[in-house]
Design a protein around this nucleic acid. Structure first.
Lengths: 217, 217
DNA sequence: CGTGTAATTGAGGATGATCAACCAAGGTGG
DNA sequence: CCACCTTGGTTGATCATCCTCAATTACACG
């Protein structure tokens, strides 16, 4: 989750041989916390690469005003909107939850780049698979009790990284539960001494107890 | 879901320029229905490309004997085990649910191929993103009542394609519910006249009613 | 025609969602 | 500096939903 500050060292930039005088097809842009990068259903014509900050992906809600369920977090090093490669529209909405710096490129440019550069597709592939793998365990944890899921999530260390300081309602949605349930689950973990919880922070105090609660053998 | 019969027309073969005398790095193998291709946690040293048949991906179960929850289906045109690119071990288990024909290659060969062939990474990327997109809507349907989820799934036409004839317990696991609940949900959809259900077949009789049940506006 | 497996049906109980009230904290304006 | 309002988090009570366990039925197989 360390920010990417320039093109040398950035996977996209490296794949473009920026260091050797070549040009990266993607250009920087910034979003304020809370801003939408793109919405589900919009024509998919651009692709993003996150360099700094955190973005959450969510499904379209039934009511157009409310947000859907957050199902993934993306930080520095992740691509957004790659579905443009295989679809006409985006499948989910991306919203910045911190101030975000990301590189953008049009689908057309991206495709030209992928065709031109030997290493480009390889680099993108790497990132895409990484994202897939990161999401995958989360899905598995969709079963089990609420307490168990929360414990599992705490053990993954998710809270220390990207989630630190994020609104609880997002965390709850991500874990597939209501904010109230998350609150109760945390309270329950606090009573067995696994964590200490305040309104704005979660501290793991006893990893063993937490592991027990997660039901890992 | 149409089987891929030879290397010309196969994305992998095409990316290897097989038609122009080049060689594809992947070699055919066959599995009987029920066989495991690989298990979660095993050292990730090979990658598969499905040409014919259906494979389900599942998470490791708590008890080593039982299967975990099926969370995805892969048919012809999908890669399996791509996590080898970014991890040492497989994150889930792949089991053939029909007779399966798939091409295999070692991670080493795959990487060499990706580096050598201009179009290779591009082709793999395309497949990986496609899989990601296919999985993504399923996850969204993880909320809503059981009946709603089943209706949604029927409308997606999933049952006509890869799932046709698959054991119900797998379908249930995939939809995030118990076989009993699936059974009840189907019964409930049958009473409102949306579907006709026998022990081994599901027929959509009234698409409108089904859409209603799915809660789509 | 038995036998075993998978699907169904039923009853009971645990879990989480919902609705509502309450509480902490930050920002704003007087 | 303090009342006020707004936002987000917690707690409580109730209820629908789904899981569990058990018994029964359908179907494929030898």
């Amino acid at each position: 989750m360390t920010p990417i500050t320039n093109c040398v060292g950035c996977p996209v930039g490296d794949a473009s041989n920026v260091g050797e005088g070549d040009r990266c097809p993607m250009t920087d842009r910034r979003w304020k916390s809370g801003a939408m990068l793109f919405s589900a259903g919009e024509p998919a014509s651009a692709v993003w690469f996150v360099k700094k900050g955190t973005v959450v992906l969510s499904k379209p809600a039934d009511q157009p005003d409310a947000d859907g369920i957050t199902w993934a977090v993306r930080g520095p090093g992740a691509f957004l909107g790659l579905e443009a490669l295989v679809r006409d529209t985006y499948v989910d909405s991306a919203r910045a939850v911190t101030d975000v710096c990301a590189c953008v490129t049009s689908l057309r440019e991206l495709e030209a780049w992928l065709d031109r550069k030997h290493t480009a597709a390889r680099a993108v592939l790497q990132c895409a698979v990484q994202a897939q793998v990161d999401d995958s365990p989360r899905r598995a944890s969709a079963d089990g009790s609420a307490v168990r899921r929360v414990a599992e999530w705490l053990l993954d260390g998710g809270h220390e990284q990207e989630w630190h300081g994020l609104p609880r309602r997002l965390v709850a949605g991500f874990l597939g539960m209501q904010p109230e349930t998350l609150s109760r689950a945390l309270a329950s973990l606090a009573t067995i001494g696994a964590v200490e919880v305040t309104r704005r922070s979660i501290t793991v105090t006893n990893r063993n107890t937490l592991t027990q609660a997660a039901g890992r053998h």
